[in-house]
């Protein structure tokens, strides 16, 4: 299988701190790859390099390559907005834009001029709210402000909003950590149904979630990838001692 994303010799420095060290990875299409590890191991930083959010932080330096279908997303002739259109991000906390529920979903489509008329926009809004499993709850109040939704609903709204720009890849930065158990379940269920269409990369610090979702696992520790591979192999037959210790709950 051709990898969808290849990370080659990636190094990231924040000022003088070396946060990611010589990362080499291959992310397979139509699978859920889970990045796990203790807090501070660099998993969120790794995720942020994938949609170039890393450059929003002052004083960071990125070296190495991240190839999306063979093209380096950090090369000068690549437009950052195009990268972020192809690689969507579901953030830790849902952050609805200060507009209506419908406008939130339509926002990306309008920016990228993806639809030619309002009819199509309205149809897509409904479609993606259905995909995110939110349509039934909000169909009667699409023009209410998005902030009037519960946190769990907001996160599904953010999912719908992200899917509406038709990305190829979904990044999730601990997307359920701010949610109650039932809302978390909703999101996890959605991610599992969506994985046939999208390449999904999820950062999590809960081992159980990793086990529920992962096809591929990347275990990180102190800025390095310790072990990566198919979920079954990493969870059941970890090769590296650190991974064994982590899975046994030693740190």
């Amino acid at each position: 299988m051709q990898p969808h994303i290849q990370v080659k010799n990636l190094n990231v420095h924040y000022g003088r701190t070396h946060v990611l060290k010589d990362i080499n990875l291959e992310i397979l299409p139509q699978q859920i790859t889970v990045i796990m590890g203790p807090s501070g191991c660099g998993k969120t930083t790794l995720l942020k390099t994938l949609n170039r959010f890393i450059e929003l932080v002052d004083g960071t330096r990125v070296t190495g390559q991240i190839l999306l279908d063979g093209q380096d997303i950090y090369s000068n002739d690549v437009d950052v907005t195009e990268v972020r259109k192809r690689i969507g991000l579901l953030a830790q906390r849902p952050q609805p834009l200060p507009m209506s529920i419908a406008a939130n979903v339509a926002y990306g489509m309008q920016i990228h001029r993806m639809k030619s008329n309002r009819q199509e926009v309205r149809k897509s809004v409904q479609h993606y709210l259905e995909v995110a499993g939110l349509w039934e709850e909000v169909s009667h109040r699409l023009n209410d402000p998005a902030t009037s939704l519960s946190t769990g609903q907001q996160q599904r709204l953010c999912l719908a909003r992200g899917l509406a720009i038709e990305p190829e890849i979904i990044l999730g930065d601990e997307p359920t950590s701010a949610l109650d158990p039932i809302s978390s379940q909703h999101i996890e269920k959605r991610l599992l149904t969506l994985k046939d269409t999208y390449t999904t990369i999820i950062v999590t610090h809960t081992l159980r979630q990793a086990k529920r979702l992962a096809d591929q696992v990347i275990f990180m520790y102190l800025g390095e990838v310790i072990e990566a591979g198919p979920a079954d192999a990493v969870f059941n037959h970890p090769k590296v001692e650190r991974t064994q210790q982590y899975l046994a709950g030693l740190f």
């Binding site: 949609n51 972020r84 991000l89 953010c158």
Partner: peptide, 11 residues
């Protein structure tokens, strides 16, 4: 986070 929500959609 609000800025990132918008930038993350390719704005």
């Amino acid at each position: 986070d609000l800025r990132e929500a918008s930038l993350g959609l390719g704005a």
